[in-house]
Amino acid sequence: MPAHKQLNLTLRVWRQPDAGSRGEFRDYKLYSVSPEMSFLEMLDVLNEQLLEEGEEPVAFDHDCREGICGTCGVVINGQPHGPMQGTTTCQLHMRNFEDGDLIVIEPWRASAFPVVRDLVVNRSAFDRIIQAGGYVSVRTGQAPDGNAILVPSPDQAGAMDAAACIGCGACVAACKNASAMLFTAAKVSHLAQLPQGEPERKQRALQMIATHDEEGFGACTNTYECEAACPAEISVSHIARLNREYSKAMLTARQ
């Protein structure tokens, strides 16, 4: 694609002043967009244009803009984080779009993720799932000896695969049931594969699933849309491990 190519786009953006309002789509024309821009930079340009026109800029979440923090994320033409695999919205580039495109931009849709404003949703439900068991308890004091607890290399690699989750919520956005099973599974599977996770293993699976359900996320029906939408490419095999962890804990936990 020649570098000088410029895009003229129509953006259909979800606008909602606050959680209590109804919200609606509004169309904006954006001219001469560089294909080198990231999707978020394109939204920055849109917002500058809106400010000049005296309209409220579009609110969207972002922080690192390099695909590691998990803060950004919108549904682009029906796909969480847009058309690329293993990519966050901030790492999506405008070269993936064509001149004249209509781009529909929506927030994550889930009852457990209420819209705060425009494209920003409240993802604190994820924090509460983590608080329910996505941790290991350690003593304070001096830094422990890094080699005191040996971890076999395959276990370490398996745990790291799961730990790659950045908590963006694309799995929930992609799932037809708005289930957060991939997110929950990633944390349960991460700690279940490490000796450090052992003491709280059963309670972790039970309490994280209980909180997941209380928050109003759906159940998994194995359509694997989550895996395809996940920017960290977390595998659904972690959901199977979560299912095993949960049934084992249910049958054997002392309470």
């Binding site: 889930a110 009852s111 049931n177 759906g218 159940a219």
Partner: peptide, 10 residues
């Protein structure tokens, strides 16, 4: 439950 979990549809 799964339909309720989505809420507003895309």
């Amino acid at each position: 439950e799964n339909r309720a979990a989505r809420g507003v549809r895309y």
